[in-house]
Each structure stands twice: as structure tokens, then as C-alpha cells.
Amino acid sequence: MSSRSFLATASCYVPPISRSKLHEIGANRRLALQRKGGKRCIYCFCSFDGEILKREAEDGNREGNEKKKTEWIHFVGIGGSGISALAMLALKQGFEVSGSDIMWNNFMDELQKAGARIFVGHSTSNLESKTGSGLPNALVISSAIPLENNEVAYAKSAGIPIYKRDGWLRRITEHYNLIAVSGTHGKSTTAAMLSYVLSAMGDNLIAVVGANVPQFKEGNIIPGSGPNFVLEADEYDCCFLGLSPSVAVVTSVEWDHVDIFHDEEAVLDTFRKFLQKVKIGGHLIICGDSAGAYSLVSKSIKERVSDCEMVLTSLASKPGYSITTYGISSKNDWHASSVTPNSHGGQDYVLVSLTLSEIRITMLKKSNVYADV
């Protein structure tokens, strides 16, 4: 058995690996294992569509960078965890950034230090440039901001494009290989750990997480160049329905956000629509231990398909993408067994797929085993 030692929240030890090997592992949208020293070592998935996708992403980046240098984006509700991450990424990608919110918080501290102009309170004067002339090229508004907000109303009257989160996320992810991590619970931890692992493997990815991650230098983002883009995909206000992921992860589905979803069926229906957004030839990774999540695909999981070239069992899917389940139950394609506390305050367990690997994490909650698997 090979051993892995998870060091801290959203971090892990990963052996050094070259970018060329990383591309080889991720080719053809498959999860892969690499042989090393006669033993199988598990690496995190990294989905590519060959050199064409990579070149397209790089071309898109070059075109985008020329445009971003002249664009000013104003974020309304900039203190929110999700919007603040988008604002920080915009700063790192060369946009001029400003924003407003009704109360100051730590996210706004970091944005101001990074060069954003931050305002407490909403006012049309916040949309004036430093020199007093000119207007923002676009407004991005939080789901919590009503359309009657005076900044939003002024922008509309002035003809400034207004994006809700779903529209802005669609714009900034469309040229990348999107890995969207969703779920009622566990998506922040899972997105953070996945991003950290890929970064440690040498992937110059972009990541946006709706929570502060101590291992991220920028707090809640990794401002790489792609082509991989890991995103915490939020179901609130149906925000993730604007996405088109190559890889989608669903950690759990339960009734939540009662101000948006009137019952559990409404939540399930929204997630079903999200799964329809996964690209043909893509991959869905779903927690089989979550009754709600599993119900989304249970009708598709009728016939297993054996592929001797693949290193794990994939499931047939009518929508045109493969499905893999994970969890603690042995019914899943990947599952954790023999979960026991360790001396570091976390858990040890054996990861079972076609091979076995010993895993050690130092995060206290057993639920973090799901994110790790």
C-alpha cells in the first residue's frame, strides 16, 4: 500500500510531477493512476481536451488580457464571500476593480490592500472614476442586491452592462476547462482541497472558493493562467446554471436556502438542471452516500461499463458523460474503509477502488473524509 499524509485543511503531500506528465495523466478526461516503484499511486483528476483546448485557452487568455487592462469592473455587495473572490480574481487578472457594501469586513480589507477602491454604503458617486470622468465597463452584483439598488438602477439608466453572479461566472470560465464543485454541504472544503492538490502537482490552475483557505496566498483564489479552472459552484439563486463544466462534482443534495427553494424537490430539480450543463464527453463525480445526490443519477446507474484502459469503473450515462461515485459505503466506485482516528487529530483510512492506498488527514471532522476521497 502507498501512503499519503494530509498536512492541514485543504492541503496534502503530493510527490513532484512534471507538467508534461500531468498533461498525460489528465488526457482524454480520465481519472488516472501512475505507477511508481512497483506500486500504484493515486493522483487527483485533471481533465484536458488535448493540446487544442490548451491552445484555445491560451489564445483566449491573450485576447482577454489585452481587454482586461482597459476594463473597470464595479462589484456591488463586494463584501460577500463569493463576490469578494471574484473581485480579487479580477484584480489579479488586470482589471481595475471597485466595489461597495453596507458594512466593512475582512474580505474588503484584503481587496483594498490588493488595490481595489472600496466604499461603505451604496451611492451613484461610487461609480465615478478616480478622475471624475468615465463609468465602469460592467457591474457585477451579488444575489443579495435588489435591482432597485441605487447603483444598479443608475448603471441600468447609463447603459452599463450588469451581470449577476451566474452571468459573470459564465463569462470568466467559458475559455477554460471548468471543474465545478457543487453540493449543499462540503463544496468549499472539496474545492479547496482539489485546488491545492492540483497546484501542488504543478498545475497553474485558476481557483475560486467561497471561503478563506489558509494555504492560498490570495485567501480564496488561486490566480493561475489555466487551462484548468476549479470553481466552487453555488446553487443559491440558481447561480451554477450559467456554467458549462467539463467536470462536475456533487458532494451532497439536501433542502437548504429556504428563501430560494420552497421544498426539497425544488433543490433536486435545480441540481438536475445543473447536471444537464455538463459537457458531452465530460465527467460527473457524485457522492453516492448522499441520498439526494445519488437520486440524481440512480436511473442512469443501471449498467456498468468495463473499460480495460480505464483505471476505475465508470458508469454509463445517457446525457453523454461518465459518472463516478465516491463515499464511505462499499457500493461506491471509490470508497473509504477502516476510518480511524490518528495521533494528528484527524483520520486514517484505506481508499478502495481497483487498488488500495492508505490515506492520512489531519482535519477533525469525519465529513472531511468525503472531501478527501
Rank of each mutant, 00 (worst) to 15 (best):
M1G: 12
S2I: 15
S3H: 13
A10Y: 05
S11N: 14
C12A: 13
P16C: 13
R19C: 06
H23F: 15
E24C: 05
I25S: 13
G26H: 00
A27I: 07
L31V: 13
Q34V: 15
G37H: 08
G37L: 10
I42K: 09
C44G: 09
C44V: 10
S47W: 02
D49W: 11
G50M: 07
E51G: 01
E51C: 04
D59S: 10
G60V: 08
R62I: 08
R62Q: 05
G64M: 12
K69V: 13
E71W: 04
W72T: 11
F75K: 00
G79A: 11
G82I: 00
G82H: 01
S84A: 13
A87E: 02
M88A: 14
E96T: 15
S98W: 06
S100Y: 02
S100C: 03
S100E: 01
I102Y: 05
N105L: 12
N106F: 08
F107G: 00
F107A: 02
L111M: 07
K113I: 11
A114M: 09
G115Y: 05
R117A: 11
R117P: 03
I118S: 00
I118T: 02
H122I: 11
N126H: 14
S129T: 15
G132F: 05
P136H: 05
N137A: 15
L139Y: 01
V140I: 10
S143F: 03
I145H: 01
I145Q: 04
N150E: 15
E151A: 10
A153R: 12
A153D: 01
Y154A: 14
P161M: 09
I162C: 13
K164I: 13
G167T: 06
L169K: 00
E174C: 15
E174S: 14
N177A: 11
A180R: 03
H185E: 14
A191N: 00
M201C: 05
M201R: 02
G202E: 08
V213N: 07
Q215V: 14
F216W: 09
K217V: 14
G219M: 07
I222R: 03
P223N: 04
P223K: 03
P223G: 08
S225V: 06
P227G: 08
F229C: 05
F229S: 00
F229Q: 01
L231V: 03
A233I: 09
D234R: 03
E235A: 11
D237T: 08
C238I: 08
L241E: 06
L243A: 03
S246W: 07
V250A: 09
V250K: 01
W255Q: 04
H262K: 15
V267G: 00
L268R: 06
D269L: 10
F271G: 04
F274R: 00
L275S: 04
H283F: 07
L284W: 03
L284C: 09
S290T: 12
G292E: 10
Y294R: 08
K299D: 11
K302F: 12
D307K: 05
E309M: 08
M310Q: 13
M310I: 09
V311I: 14
L312Q: 11
T313W: 02
S317V: 06
T324V: 15
Y326E: 00
G327H: 05
I328T: 02
S337W: 04
S343I: 12
G345T: 07
Q347F: 12
Q347T: 03
T355D: 14
L356V: 11
L356E: 15
S357R: 11
M363A: 08
M363Q: 11
L364E: 13
K365W: 03
S367V: 06
S367D: 08
V369W: 01
V373F: 00
